[in-house]
């Protein structure tokens, strides 16, 4: 043990992962303007995700989706007091450098934007700011954690309002974790090989029965019931993208989803908050989206 010192340490794993710990049991909402950020904060969002277009619009309008204009991000940071997250393209470390100097609180290296590198993700250890990354399975989650991600979100299929992929991904990740906990050490070496993940992380999860970082879920959550289902399936919290501001009554729906996440195991509360919310986002069935147009397959 070293002599104690009062030196302050910034950007350590504990500090990065710690912010995600504080977001647990909360809802992180996609916003594209300062006015939407205001609505989200007033409705009880635990953080906002600043981006230029919500996934439903990226999907319908097509084209290359990139990091937001710094002016937009500045205006959202100025509007709210809760943490502000923003998206960088997969592998685009310069977008991440920009977001860090803008003073956002968390970077989402996101498959919702067009990837900038089809081989490598960002080396997230190089940054003081923490990163959240998407994953469809445990191996992908562990590769991201190995690269320095301080928070994981299951991907789902963003911009659809169809929760089925989110269900699949959270069930897959938690199922694979459970499987590891029942393995002997010789089996864990093979598991690490099959998961394409570092043995040390695999062994740690086999011992603890959980990821070393917070696990939220995302992609297709559109109703309070969707959000509560993700929590009952073991998510620590929920990202809602297009589901709020593509619905008929964003204020009320946002507040209802916040309440449903806190009382995720109380069907009576979830029933009450589900009343009279107006139209949910129209949505699109994931099965109707051709494989090359699915966002969840981005990331390696």
């Amino acid at each position: 043990m070293t002599e104690s010192t009062s030196a302050e340490q910034f950007g350590s794993s504990r500090v990065k992962r710690g912010l995600a710990e504080m977001l647990k049991g909360g809802v992180i909402m996609d916003v594209v303007t300062a006015a939407q950020a205001r609505i989200a904060e007033d409705a009880g969002a635990v953080a906002v995700m600043a981006l230029e277009r919500v996934p439903a619009d990226i999907r319908s309008q097509g084209g290359v989706a990139r990091m937001s204009d710094p002016d937009l991000i500045d205006s959202i940071i100025a509007e709210v007091n809760i943490p502000v997250m923003a998206k960088a393209r997969i592998g685009h470390f310069v977008e991440a450098q920009i977001l860090e100097v803008l003073g956002v609180d968390y970077i989402d290296e996101s498959e919702v934007l067009s990837p900038a590198d089809y081989t490598n993700h960002i080396d997230k250890w190089n940054f003081t700011i923490p990163f959240v990354c998407g994953a469809t399975n445990l191996g992908e989650a562990l590769r991201r954690i190995n690269e320095g991600a301080a928070m994981i979100r299951s991907k789902g299929e963003a911009g659809t309002g169809d929760v089925s992929e989110a269900t699949k991904h959270i069930r897959t990740i938690n199922g694979e974790i459970k499987r590891l906990t029942s393995m002997s050490r010789d089996e864990l070496y093979v598991a690490a090989k099959e998961l394409q993940a570092p043995y040390e992380l695999v062994a740690e999860i086999a011992a603890t029965g959980k990821l070393p970082v917070v696990l939220f879920t995302a992609g297709g959550v559109a109703t309070p019931a969707d959000a509560a289902m993700m929590m009952q399936l073991g998510a620590d919290g929920v990202f809602v993208g297009s589901g709020i501001f593509k619905s008929g009554n964003p204020e009320q729906r946002a507040a209802a989803i916040v309440k449903a996440v806190t009382f995720y195991d109380d069907a009576k509360v979830i029933a009450d908050v589900s009343r009279g919310l107006g139209e949910a986002m129209v949505g699109i069935n994931v099965s109707d989206i051709a494989e090359p147009h699915r966002l969840a397959t981005r990331g390696w």
Partner: peptide, 27 residues
């Protein structure tokens, strides 16, 4: 300030004894 200003440090807390507390400050 923002998350990049979050930090951990050692802190003297006389009420808890001589050994400093390792404290994590997050926003």
């Amino acid at each position: 300030g923002s998350q990049t200003a979050s930090f951990e440090t050692d802190l003297d807390v006389p009420a808890l004894g001589e050994l400093p507390v390792h404290a994590v400050f997050i926003r």
